[in-house]
Design a protein around this nucleic acid. Structure first.
Lengths: 234, 234
DNA sequence: GCAAGAAGAAGTGTGTACAATCGGTGTATG
DNA sequence: CATACACCGATTGTACACACTTCTTCTTGC
């Protein structure tokens, strides 16, 4: 009923409510890339006018989760292969920064919180695919939040969601995105280890996630025809 | 007159027009952190309704340039010291990625384009402070654009603008933000040199920009008392 | 003289109306 | 039979109206 009152009286930023719902629907793959999001339907579904729905779409577009073209129905963004690769490259940098800030500084409470998420991941392993993906994302987001740095949190969160969306496009079904034990190892490394080691582990983890989805990091090979052919020009 | 027609007929995304104008006003310091941006005035100034102005403010808020609090007049964002530090940390990572992608691959046309900007910077050196800051920012943005990677471009652009805003808060007046010769060296290093060397130079450059503004990068030293004292505990 | 409160002004939050535009369908035409 | 075109429904773009909140200022009581 507090819900009731809040949703009727103050409304407490109803745009944010829609954004959160859509983000979650996207990351859980209830919404797929390319799916249409007409303002009317959205507004009707959430009990608000088109104004609010439109504003939410604008925000999600700014986050790269929604494609907004003039006079056209908004759609869930469809990252290109290049986009996906770039997103993962940036993600590696950002999450490395998270790990660097956190290495050796996790409190017991924080470790417990992270382990709880991993536990939930473990339990969701054989349930709906979407839940497990959401939890995996949540793990990374929570990690970022523990830095207490608002700017970093914002970018990591955004890039994680975009990465999830990219995986929805390019990873084949039934490939478990984030092995839970990798997350467990990560917790241990961050809790105990030196920053370098923890960073390396995060690199490996994200690399593994990307390659499971058939992406190969652009950092590894240069993908430039001239470079590739260089050894053969002799 | 093409302008006239476009602005009246198709309107060609008038939200974007306002965003661009405000971004520029902010980066040139015509608008200072904390300055009020009432929707009415904005709409009147640009000849649009409050709807459009509001939408523009929403977008800029998503970019971190505007602070939007419920029922309150929007203001140009006022980054905290911690925000500023985080922004620069992230900026370093992102721009390093730009350099890595560009090292040894700049075309003659691109080099020329970059040098033109630096030349403009040089000429603006003794003019209005705002112009010179805008050009310095433009240099970095253009560099990012040359990667042709939309995602990277978007983040670098955003972070550069936010960095400029941070400098508006924390750097004292009359400290030339980006020495033009540093930009020239950067061009040379990227054009000729190996990626590592160019990256290092970009690091130095951004470090210099930050420290000129009395920020010390958090990456360089760990800022943790226990770590600092470690060598002395023998 | 000063603090507390009330009233008006200023500004935002949201729904709605209407114009402009897009997408699809059916029809005419070569 | 394929293509071009015109029409209509669906959907977005934008302005505006009205309710509500916040800010300002003036007044009132102590």
């Amino acid at each position: 009923m507090a819900e009731e009152k809040r949703s009727r009286k103050t409304g407490g930023d109803r745009v944010a409510v829609i954004c959160t719902a859509l983000r979650r629907a996207i990351i859980e793959r209830a919404l797929s890339p390319g799916d249409r999001l007409p303002e009317d339907s959205l507004g009707e579904r959430f009990g608000v006018s088109r104004t609010i729905a439109r504003s939410a779409l604008g925000q999600l577009a700014a986050e790269g989760l929604v494609d907004l073209r003039r006079n056209r129905i908004a759609v869930v963004a469809v990252p290109s292969f290049e986009d996906a690769r770039d997103i993962f490259d940036i993600r590696v940098d950002l999450e490395r920064q998270v790990v660097r800030h956190l290495a050796g500084k996790l409190t017991e409470a924080q470790v417990k919180q992270l382990k709880a998420i991993v536990e939930a991941e473990h339990q969701a392993r054989h349930g709906a695919e979407g839940i497990s993906i959401r939890l995996a994302t949540e793990f990374h987001v929570r990690l970022a939040e523990m830095t207490g740095k608002p700017v970093l949190i914002r970018y990591v969160t955004e890039i994680c969601y975009r990465a999830g969306l990219s995986l929805a496009v390019f990873s084949r079904p039934h490939s478990s995105e984030c092995a839970v034990n990798e997350h467990l190892e990560l917790i241990e490394a961050i809790r105990t280890g030196p920053a370098d080691k923890a960073c390396a582990l995060m690199d490996d983890h994200l690399e593994a996630v990307a390659s499971r989805a058939l992406l190969q990091s652009s950092g590894a090979r240069s993908r430039d025809l001239m470079d590739i052919l260089a050894p053969y020009t002799e």
